[in-house]
Amino acid sequence: MNTVTGAWDWLTDPANWAGADGIRHRLVQHLVLTAVCLVASCLVALPVALVLGHLGRGGALAVNISNVGRAVPTFAVLVLLLLTPVGDWGEGPTIVALVLFAVPPLLTNAYVGMREVDRDVVRAARGMGMTGPQLLRRVEVPLAMPMILNGVRIAAVQLVATATIAALAGGGGLGRIITAGFNLASTPQVVAGAVLVAVFALLVEAVFETVERLAPVRGSR
């Protein structure tokens, strides 16, 4: 119980919210890192996945890349990047690692979504004289949207988790509150930081789940 009240006291102390190491700054860092990297990952992964899905090529790669992503430890990649020249460039390792781990779920889900579009529908669209790009934009993408958004949600949750681990390798974000707590041997601060990260992750998941639930309804109308 002591830890709980300690963590609560730590969270409600205004001094812990201000400054470069304060909660507010770390929260903004975490949010910006996650959002920027999510947009970047989508820009990288989605066009590739949609075109591959449309053409029906490279399926083995698109599907297996997720399994490879799971086997490679995030922490190891972060540290490896930190020791390469990328490490000299501030948040470089964090950004590269974030994008690397967000791309596989985006790629796999979007690809599978595109391939699962009913072949009869595709054939009907072709019969109506749709060209390849038209078919992609007006038929396949709208029908694959639920799977694509599912990939975006998984990627977003993965990004929040990776950004947290980045703190172990010197990156910014909410994880820094936890690592600072460990360095100070302050269990209340560690727990307070962990609660912040957990709430942040659950909020992100909730936001994307809402988006997912609302989007297909709009498409099918």
């Binding site: 830890t3 947290t164 994880g175 990260v197 992750a201």
Partner: peptide
């Protein structure tokens, strides 16, 4: 599912006490 969403670093930290 909620447990799975919590990032690993936070999960280990929450178990510290």
């Amino acid at each position: 599912t909620v447990l799975y969403t919590i990032p690993s670093l936070a999960m280990f930290s929450l178990l510290l006490p």
